[in-house]
Simulated scan of single mutants.
Amino acid sequence: MFKSSLAFAASRLFFAKKQPENVPPGSMGWPFIGETLMFLKPHKSNSIGTFLQDHFTRYGKVFKSHLFGSPTIVSADCDLNSFVLQNEEKLFKCSYPKAVHEILGKSSMLLVEGDVHKRLRNVALCFTSTCKSSPKYFFDVDKLIRATMASWKNSKEVILNKELTLDLMVKQILELEPEHPSASRILENFLTFMKGFISLPIYLPGTSYTKAVKARERICSTVKSILEERKVGLRDEKIDYLDVILSNESLIDEERVSTVLDLLLAGYDTTSVLIQTVVYFLGQSPKVLEHLKEEHQEIRKRKDTDPLNLEDYEQMEFTQNVIQEALRCGNIVKFVHRRALKDVYYKGYFIPSGWKVLPIATAVHLDPAKKRRKPLHLLVED
Rank of each mutant, 00 (worst) to 15 (best):
K231Y: 02
P307W: 09
S129T: 14
A150T: 09
L308R: 06
L52E: 00
S95I: 02
I73H: 04
T271G: 00
D140G: 09
V23Y: 02
T271F: 07
G69E: 04
T165R: 01
D167W: 05
R256L: 09
I73T: 05
S45L: 11
L176I: 07
P71N: 13
Q320M: 06
I299F: 10
E163H: 10
D382Y: 00
L366P: 02
V223L: 14
Q315P: 04
Q19F: 03
V170I: 15
T222F: 06
G114Y: 11
R218A: 12
S151L: 01
S285Y: 04
P307I: 14
S107K: 13
V23G: 05
E177S: 14
L191Q: 11
Y137A: 15
Y241I: 02
A340V: 03
V333N: 03
D304E: 13
E311M: 14
L85A: 05
D79T: 13
Q324M: 13
T277F: 06
L13S: 09
S70H: 11
K44Y: 10
K231E: 13
L104V: 08
E157A: 13
K370S: 13
R373C: 13
P359K: 04
I245S: 03
R121Q: 09
L164W: 00
E175L: 10
H180I: 03
T57D: 13
E188N: 11
P201W: 05
P178A: 04
I103R: 04
V74T: 05
L191T: 12
V364N: 00
H101N: 09
Q172H: 10
K342D: 07
E311L: 15
S70L: 11
S95N: 12
K162W: 04
T362I: 05
S247A: 15
K356D: 10
H117I: 03
N87L: 02
I226V: 11
E229C: 12
